[in-house]
Amino acid sequence: MTSKVKSEVKILKGQDAENKVLDYVKRINRPYGAVDISANLKGAVPKPATQKILLALAEKGKITQKTYSKSTFFVANQSDCDVLPENKVKVLAEETDALLESNKTLTAEIKTASAELARIKSTPTDSELVAQIEEVESKVTKLRAHLEPLRAGTPLFSTSELDALDSEWVQWRAEWVRRRKVFYNFWALVSDPLSQPDAVELAEDLGIEYDTPEHLQVERGPLCVVALAQAQASSSKRR
């Protein structure tokens, strides 16, 4: 079994205990209960003795006793506290103002240093820069490889591939034109009984989007005109 370590705090009694408690209350100059004062004195004055001493000091008028609800607090008499002379208060006020101004300066310096630190942290390291440069050089090499056929005049698509693309474009555009015609016919049946405002409101509720001027311009462009001619030629052949 481990032996208990004896406390090195000397237990005060009598006048020594009273002087200790009174000195502490005056020095701290804030409300405390007996339990807190005894604890803050590290047990030099036991709790029961502290309570008795505080009550006795309050009866003698050396300290003030205040009761809040079921708790009792003791505080030094404010009339007995030393009052600083006006010149000393002025000096302390000037020192406070100087410290506040210095604090503002330091705060600004910290803000600037923090911003600089954030900038430095966001800057790539040497190893990261090397990796980024290698990545960019690799992309450049690949892009140059893609450009070589163009520089040499080599067609990117064969004639058969272009014909297949044109055929597919004509096919699906003709399908789009057909479906648009079906929509317009159906919409005419639905909207004819309605007034113009009601028809517009219904179209908005259904999320219908009409061709924009840009769409119409594309329709009148060479791409769609050629597709239309090819579709008509294909239709004539089938007949």
Rank of each mutant, 00 (worst) to 15 (best):
V190H: 04
A174V: 08
T50I: 03
E94M: 08
P213G: 03
L162R: 13
N185T: 15
A115G: 13
V45F: 01
P155M: 10
G153C: 05
A188L: 07
L150V: 15
V89L: 14
R179S: 08
Y184S: 10
K70I: 06
S236A: 14
L100Y: 03
C224I: 13
D23P: 00
V9K: 05
E209G: 04
T2W: 01
V75A: 01
Y68Q: 09
A76W: 01
S167G: 15
I37F: 02
E8I: 14
A44L: 02
D198R: 11
W169S: 14
T96I: 07
Q65V: 00
V140L: 13
P85Q: 08
V9Q: 06
I208M: 10
E86F: 06
L54I: 09
A58C: 04
G207C: 06
T96V: 05
Q232E: 10
A118Q: 14
S158T: 15
S160M: 08
S234V: 05
T141A: 09
A93N: 08
T67K: 09
H146M: 15
V91F: 02
I53D: 00
L92T: 08
E148H: 09
V83M: 06
K4I: 14
I28V: 12
K4F: 04
N103H: 09
S38N: 03
E94N: 11
D36F: 00
L84S: 11
T72Y: 00
R238Y: 01
K47F: 04
S122P: 04
S158D: 04
Q78G: 11
V9N: 03
T64A: 08
L100A: 15
F74D: 00
R151W: 02
L156Y: 04
K181R: 12
E109Y: 02
K10P: 01
A34Q: 00
C224V: 15
R119C: 05
L55A: 08
L129Y: 03
A93P: 01
K181I: 06
L216M: 12
P193I: 09
F74Y: 14
E94W: 01
T159F: 06
T159Y: 06
E168C: 12
V5P: 04
D23K: 10
A227V: 09
L162W: 07
S3L: 11
L216A: 07
T50R: 01
L22P: 03
E109N: 08
E201M: 15
D163W: 02
D211L: 07
S79I: 06
L84D: 08
N19C: 04
G33W: 00
K111T: 15
E219R: 12
N19Q: 11
D211H: 05
I120P: 01
A131W: 02
I110G: 03
K47P: 01
V218I: 11
L228E: 06
L57G: 04
N19F: 02
L150Y: 11
F183N: 13
F183C: 11
L92Q: 09
V200L: 07
P197T: 12
T123W: 04
S127Q: 12
D163H: 08
S235I: 10
T72N: 00
F73E: 03
T159E: 14
T112S: 12
G221C: 07
A227S: 15
A17K: 09
S235N: 13
F74M: 05
C224H: 09
E94F: 02
D36A: 10
F157A: 15
K111R: 12
K104N: 11
F183Q: 12
K66H: 03
C224N: 05
